[in-house]
């Protein structure tokens, strides 16, 4: 109980540090590029155009409103990818600081997830703009899109904390995870219709919690109807489990980090 209180007091004390770290993370990403933060709009927009050309014209796949379909998957995937990969490197990358002054270590992981979320929020502007341009009918269900986003955020943090902890002890994870993330992108129907996957492999999508999240978002944003709550529930359970495991692992091993940095 006492540690709970200390945790909150500590968080209060270092709140400004969290803001600083998030700011630094975003600045590092766009450092020395002329367009700076505008890349968080431009990049998804450009890849959207590219994939639209490839899939709508070259492969003649009929996905209704492919640009929006792709963008939803893409920005959700970016949040997960940059958040988890950033968190994975957060402890190793800040070892000089951790060695010289006491700072709650989870802040570094939290900050990278936070900065990925800020980028995500910015790219939502592009999503809304493209939705307006392509005449998507906005319904009241748009509000419900916030639930899968929250679930995605929790999942990113959870997986990020697990990776941050494990990577301190086994640096191989960094390379392994890069491959895994690519696999996840190809296995989550980010840029192709889910229907092209053969019947006998469809279960792979069904057990993929990340696909569940983007599928929920697509349903509310594109069809204007409520998603299958079972799908969301599955992703929520997965996110909470990963968060609990991540926090427990991190908490248990954080005192040993310094001996391995």
């Amino acid at each position: 109980m006492i540690s709970d209180h200390r945790f909150i007091a500590n968080f209060e004390k270092y709140r400004y540090l969290l803001v600083q770290l998030i700011k630094r993370d975003i600045q590092v990403k766009y450092r020395n590029s002329m367009l700076g933060i505008f890349w968080s709009f431009l990049e998804p927009l450009l890849t959207m155009i590219m994939f639209t050309i490839i899939f709508s014209y070259i492969f003649k796949r009929d996905i209704p409103n492919f640009p929006v379909y792709y963008l939803i998957g893409r920005i959700a995937f970016s949040l997960f990818q940059s958040g988890t990969m950033g968190a994975m490197k957060s402890i190793i990358g800040n070892s000089a600081i951790l060695r010289s002054v006491y700072v709650p270590k989870y802040l570094f992981a939290l900050a990278t997830v936070g900065s990925s979320f800020v980028t995500f929020l910015l790219s939502l502007i592009i999503l809304v703009a493209v939705m307006i341009v392509t005449n998507v009918h906005f319904t009241i269900y748009v509000i419900f899109a916030s639930l899968p986003v929250i679930v995605l955020l929790l999942m990113t943090l959870g997986v990020g904390l697990i990776l941050a902890t494990v990577t301190v002890f086994f640096r191989d994870i960094e390379h392994l995870y890069g491959v895994f993330v690519m696999l996840l992108m190809y296995g989550s129907a980010v840029f192709y219709p889910a229907s092209i996957i053969p019947e006998k492999w469809q279960f792979l999508l069904a057990i993929n919690p990340f696909y569940a999240i983007i599928s929920c978002m697509r349903t509310v944003l594109m069809n204007g109807t409520l998603y299958n709550t079972g799908e969301l529930l599955y992703a929520t359970v997965f996110a909470i489990v990963s968060l609990v495991v991540g926090m427990a692992l991190f908490y248990k091993y954080q005192n040993k980090f310094l001996l391995h940095l």
Binding site: K13, Y16, V19, Q20, A96, I97, S100, V101, Y102, V103
Partner: peptide, 30 residues
């Protein structure tokens, strides 16, 4: 702790920004 004074500085930050970055690392509010 006045140990390893320069750690926590970001070379790409200006002096002004580094004051706030380093200060926040020491746990001070804005």
């Amino acid at each position: 702790p006045l140990l390893e004074l320069g750690s926590g500085f970001d070379p790409e930050y200006s002096g002004r920004e580094n004051i706030f970055l380093k200060g926040s690392l020491l746990g001070y509010s804005r």
